[in-house]
């Protein structure tokens, strides 16, 4: 498997800093599960954050009483004693064997199973979808199944959109997106992604939640109603 479309620096950095909300992070983390190269880039970014951490000027050093408080706290940590016996998980974990599974973690847990257990809902014109619940009001997260040779349905969107291919492939202009590829699209991009002829395409699609529009209306009405 060769992945050709990766996470941009700006998006990956948002993820590394902990600033990216749950919906977008789900697409990023699922790409990372399939892409060792981006995991190395993430390591480098966390390393950079660590170097900045060294550089951060701390205005107030810790005092003796801060240390006494800390010492008292770790003394009654129940984990402290047993932790000694634990081995580092890196050494303990066996290398996982390659498997026929399609959907990696963390996405699989959100769906409750792999592709063979999913309950699709018809979306019209042969396409199917599953809405994925998250605690993130900023995004709408869906798994889409696009029939071979057909365009991605309902495809007018405003704002950012992340599409991660899990099986099959789609074309967008001159670009081909196959398993593991992540397409990052801006709101002003007009495009018609279309599944390739050979097989149906399953992809994770994260878009900005449509709530924005209604909140705009509320904001327009508010001054009139004097809420």
């Amino acid at each position: 498997m060769t992945i050709n479309h990766h996470i941009s620096d700006a998006l990956l950095m948002d993820y590394a800093s902990g600033n990216l909300s749950e919906g977008w992070s789900l697409a990023v983390a699922t790409h990372l599960a399939l892409c060792p190269g981006c995991r190395r880039r993430l390591d480098a970014m966390e390393g950079a954050a660590g170097a900045l951490f060294d550089k951060l000027i701390a205005r107030e050093p810790v005092t003796g009483s801060d240390w006494e408080k800390m010492k008292a706290r770790i003394a009654c940590e129940p984990g402290a004693v047993t932790a000694v016996a634990e081995k580092p998980p890196v050494a303990a974990a066996p290398k996982p064997a390659r498997s026929a599974g399609v959907i990696p973690e963390p996405l699989r847990s959100y769906l409750g199973g792999d592709v063979d257990t999913l309950k699709w809902r018809a979306l019209g014109r042969g396409a199917y979808q599953i809405r994925i619940e998250t605690g993130d009001p900023e995004t709408q997260v869906r798994l889409l199944k696009i029939p071979a040779g057909r365009p991605v349905p309902e495809h007018t969107h405003e704002g950012r959109e992340l599409t991660l291919v899990l099986s099959g492939s789609f074309r967008d202009g001159n670009d081909l997106f196959a398993r593991g590829d992540l397409e990052e699209a801006d709101g002003d991009l007009l495009h018609t992604p279309t599944a390739t002829e050979d097989e149906d395409c399953i992809c994770l699609a994260v878009t900005e939640a449509p709530l924005k529009f209604s909140s705009w209306i509320v904001r327009l009405i508010q001054p009139v109603l004097k809420i």
Binding site: A29, T30, L32, A33, L34, R39, A93, P96, A97, R98, S99, G101, V102, I103, P104, E105, P106, R108
Partner: peptide, 8 residues
């Protein structure tokens, strides 16, 4: 992501 996931 989960390093011990078989699909990883």
């Amino acid at each position: 992501f989960d390093e011990n996931d078989p699909v990883f």
